[in-house]
Design a protein around this nucleic acid. Structure first.
Lengths: 205, 205
DNA sequence: AATTTGAGTGTACATGTGTACGCTCAAATT
DNA sequence: AATTTGAGCGTACACATGTACACTCAAATT
């Protein structure tokens, strides 16, 4: 009892999402997309759009949420790859950059709307980044024995660096991409090292 | 021989710039501004705009450049405040956040157009960030004796962290702002500490 | 079999946009 | 004093947008 009707609806809903994602590129902000254009590419009349989303904004928030799901899957897969003969930092960076490489448009959406025009967008992105940060902070806490507050600050720095280098990765050629992975890894190690030293120093004050 | 005519022109040119800056706010991207609207606020006819700028894009690039000038002035003043009884990291963070506080709209412009739609915009912002990074890297090199490559990577990380926390600073209330200054300072120290340790470790390999 | 529902359509409209074109008239140049 | 220049104006146009409204017609419900 799938509901043949509901099935079709879901199908065009996906077509709308796909059309929007497809139009998000290096030179297209989400807010520069038009309802009509998205509808056109999805193969429906402009007014049919409203059967699925109240707004372009509602569509955008859906995309951000979808992105969050993908990112969390990614993190799970990263944890699986860790432990053989590769450090947690290296595997995280590599996995993240793979994500960027395979989902450039949706990553660009996150990147832009993080400091974008719509408050609910900014909040949605902040939420996704927070998931990312909290899980990392928890991981650091159990694996490094550092103070919670320190883990939190450290995690925030790690995420910031990774996220931003991801942005550069988007526009880089293959050679530059390898360099970027190396640079990012080094910068993350700076932070990890510095945080550990910080705790030692302050507890031995 | 100022040219009374040229004086007037400069005046309306500044009016255009002021109007654009004024319209850039938390919920207005540069690309969402319209020529007509800017002209309206500047008190001129839409078509008069073209006497001053070829494009909205040309206006935007002018704003970015103006921002660069302001930023460099800021860095000079930061260096003057250093050395009394405050560390270079602390004074840099404070100065930067002051800049953000006093020029929220222009900082938002930088922030957004960095990953924005127009290539020439992205390049212009990248150029300004690079000035910032290079000067910092030079400073690190002469004051810490670390390898040039290491200084460069370190400077990039420092700038990334500062820039991003500046973005959060924009939307924060006064209490959160003080916290942010403290957090940022700590994160920068992590990096500085980590970079120094990195060099020791690798030279003693 | 009769009725209700709702996804998708097509038409229509008001609004805002960038910019082409020809004008004015005061400042600058000759 | 005569001429040139150019900042600013007003009109006009073609175009794209969001969405209101009344519709169809097949699937779902009764």
């Amino acid at each position: 009892m799938t509901g043949l009707r509901a099935q079709q609806k879901e199908k065009t809903r996906q077509a709308i999402i796909a059309a929007a994602l497809n139009q998000l590129s290096a030179d297209r902000t989400f807010s520069s997309l038009s309802l009509r254009e998205v509808a056109r590419e999805a193969g429906i009349a402009p007014t049919s759009f409203y059967r699925h989303f109240k707004d372009m904004e509602e569509l955008g928030l859906t995309l951000v949420d979808e992105c969050g799901v993908t990112l969390r899957q990614l993190m799970r897969s990263a944890r699986k790859r860790f432990g053989e003969n590769i450090s947690i930092i290296a595997v995280s960076v590599e996995t993240f950059m793979e994500f960027v490489e395979h989902n450039p448009n949706i990553f660009r959406l996150l990147l832009r709307e993080r400091s974008g025009t719509s408050k609910s967008f900014r909040e949605a992105v902040a939420r996704e980044v927070k998931y990312f940060t909290v899980e990392l902070s928890d991981y650091l806490q159990q694996s490094t024995q550092l103070e919670p507050a320190l883990c939190q600050i450290q995690a925030e720095a790690l995420v910031t660096i990774t996220f931003n280098n991801g942005a550069d990765y988007l526009d880089a050629d293959p050679v530059k991409r390898l360099q970027l992975i190396a640079t990012t890894t080094t910068q993350l190690r700076f932070i990890a090292h510095g945080a550990a030293a910080w705790q030692k120093q302050s507890s031995a004050h």
